[in-house]
Amino acid sequence: MIVREFVINNKSGLHARPATLWVQTASRYQSSIRLKKANREVDGKSLLAILSLGLSAGSSVEVTIDGSDEAAASGELAKLIADLAEKGE
């Protein structure tokens, strides 16, 4: 199991387009992916669940990845978050 803290550094947070990219990326992996903000924990492969967290710019979210391909999933999701910030999404 991998537990990581991500800070959403893109200017508009995980709104519809970036959240869709997250779900598309996460769904390629067999591992369970959960996002937690404050006391709410949601499925990291569900667009509506992610949007319900209201992850705006500067938000911090705990991501738990558990499964056979957890390391690959963790690396790819970290790259996605960095790319979103870099592109100004």
Rank of each mutant, 00 (worst) to 15 (best):
L77T: 00
V7H: 01
L77V: 02
D83S: 15
A78W: 08
T64S: 11
I33W: 00
S46W: 04
I81W: 02
S68H: 08
V42R: 10
S68A: 12
T20V: 06
M1G: 10
V63F: 03
E62G: 08
G67A: 07
Q24E: 15
E62R: 12
T20S: 10
S31F: 10
I33C: 01
S60T: 13
Q30L: 13
T25N: 10
G67D: 05
E89W: 11
L53K: 01
I33A: 01
S56P: 10
A57L: 04
D43F: 09
A78D: 14
A72K: 05
I8G: 00
R28N: 05
T64E: 09
S12E: 12
E76I: 04
G88L: 04
A26E: 01
S31Y: 06
E70D: 04
R28D: 02
S52M: 09
G75P: 13
G67L: 06
A82F: 03
V3C: 10
G67W: 03
A73S: 09
T20M: 08
A78Y: 11
A19R: 04
A78V: 12
V63S: 02
Q30H: 11
N10T: 06
P18G: 01
L48F: 14
A19S: 11
I65A: 05
E89R: 09
G13M: 10
V3P: 02
A85K: 04
E86F: 15
L84K: 01
L77G: 00
I2S: 07
E5R: 11
L53H: 01
K45H: 00
G58L: 00
S68P: 06
Y29A: 14
N39V: 11
N39D: 11
N39S: 14
A73N: 09
L21Y: 03
N39W: 05
S59L: 04
K45M: 00
Q30G: 13
L51R: 07
E76W: 00
L55K: 06
T20F: 06
H15C: 07
D43L: 09
D83G: 13
K87G: 13
S27C: 12
S56T: 15
A26F: 03
A72P: 02
S59M: 04
L77Y: 01
L80K: 06
S12G: 11
